[in-house]
Simulated scan of single mutants.
Amino acid sequence: MDTIFQFLLAELKQETKASDRNCQAVAGRLAEEVDRICTESKRIQDSGDVMEWAYALARHRLQQCLHYYRLGSRRGRVDLHSTLSAIVYRYINPAKSQYSYQARLTLIEDFLQSFYMESLNAFRRETKLDTSYRPKSMLELGEYMAFTERYGKRRIPLPGRRNQQLIILRAQTFSQQQPSETLVDMEQAAEGGMSEGDDAYKVASMQRLREQMVAQDQEPAEDSLRHSVVHELTAYLKERKQEDCIDYFMLRLQDLPANEIEQILGLTARQRDYLQQRFKYHLVRFTFTHRWELVHQWLEIDLEKDLGLSPKRYDRFVSQLTDQQQSLLQLKKEKRPDTEIAKAIGCTPNQVQKQWFKILEQAWEIRNEQSGASNPTDE
């Protein structure tokens, strides 16, 4: 345990700006967890490589913690919220209720707020911290958010040799406990008026609606763009009657492994592979044709940033285009409509879209090549 503690402490000091005391506290808690897992796991004890397992677990816990630490408070919360929302989305759907997409998001928000408190209590209990403990530093917050993600994904054994993620079981219970839908008078909610005959749930619903109606805080631009992309892609798939692709998309948002996706959706490996290929087809069409501006802006690879290419690679990219494609690219940069571009380069608007698809696809390939390149002189 001391060896693992020293390893984690050294890494935290090197990778963060946290104080020595803060690094020691987090390293100690992570080392204790690794020691507990290795001690209690019969498979690890029988492996003959306990230290190898310990280092692997320590690195995994460390990288999860650093992931949220590097994202920062706001982006870390958004990332965690998106990950957990994607897991529970299909389970927050009370029976005999026709909830809209936005209404389900509100229910998910309510559910996750209570789940975060449950997770904090579990974190205090498992790390033997005081019941009043709350993460204060960015490193402590990163540690807690990493724990919350793992806590939600814990596999809980069920009868019949089955198991399920803890957060899904909690979501199913939450969904079953929801009362029938309540009709709320929008004008009355806006004015804040309540009548004596209103029950407690309706009063709470009206209060929450009123708070949302008068709220002034705006989403950060990055969060708003991400939400727009998810919403637009979901609507795009729904319009094409690809509901199973939407379910797959929600699970892929939090990077679940293939076997877990198969289990949740009730698919064989072959069926999941077919669904994955169909989703990729629609994703490519959406990314390169339907709403390419939105996606590229979100990924910060829009035309104003040379499609995310370094200067040398952008020059090489342009040199590989035909004269017609170079003209098309320039006109797109000038934000000309497709009908005007078609006249300028002597083709139909449909041909403009096809050529633009090829240009974006070519830039995407070069960008992927760039991200995997190890030669800094090419930048």
Rank of each mutant, 00 (worst) to 15 (best):
D2Y: 08
I4K: 06
F5I: 01
A10D: 12
A10S: 14
K13G: 10
K13A: 04
T16F: 06
R21C: 01
R21A: 12
R21L: 04
R21N: 05
C23V: 10
A25N: 01
A25S: 12
A25E: 07
A25P: 00
K42H: 07
K42W: 09
G48I: 05
W53H: 15
Y55G: 03
A56F: 07
L57M: 12
H60N: 08
Y69E: 13
Y69Q: 03
L71R: 09
G72V: 04
R75W: 00
R77W: 02
R77F: 04
I92Q: 09
P94L: 11
P94H: 13
P94I: 02
K96L: 05
Y99D: 14
S100R: 05
Y101H: 03
Q102A: 10
R104V: 10
L107F: 14
L112F: 02
S114Q: 13
M117D: 15
F123M: 05
P135Y: 09
F147L: 04
R150M: 10
I156T: 11
P159F: 00
L169W: 02
F174Q: 09
F174W: 09
Q176R: 14
Q177C: 10
Q177R: 13
G197N: 11
G197S: 13
D199Q: 01
R208T: 13
Q212L: 12
Q216P: 02
D217K: 15
D223P: 01
D223L: 06
D223G: 04
S224K: 15
S224H: 10
R226W: 10
H227V: 03
H231Q: 10
E232L: 11
Y236T: 08
L237H: 03
E239P: 02
Q242N: 04
I246Y: 03
L253R: 13
A258R: 11
N259R: 13
E260H: 05
G266S: 04
D273R: 12
Y274W: 02
H282T: 05
R285Y: 02
F286N: 02
T289K: 11
W298H: 13
I301V: 14
E304A: 08
K305Y: 03
K305V: 00
L307G: 06
P311F: 01
P311E: 08
K312V: 08
Y314H: 15
V318H: 00
S319W: 03
T322H: 12
T322Y: 05
S327T: 13
S327Q: 15
L328T: 07
L328G: 08
L331M: 11
L331V: 02
L331C: 07
L331I: 01
E334K: 15
K335Q: 14
D338F: 11
T339E: 15
K343T: 12
A344C: 06
P349S: 01
K354V: 08
K354T: 14
Q355F: 07
W356G: 09
K358P: 00
I359P: 04
A363H: 03
W364N: 01
E369I: 08
G372V: 01
A373K: 03
T377M: 13
D378I: 10
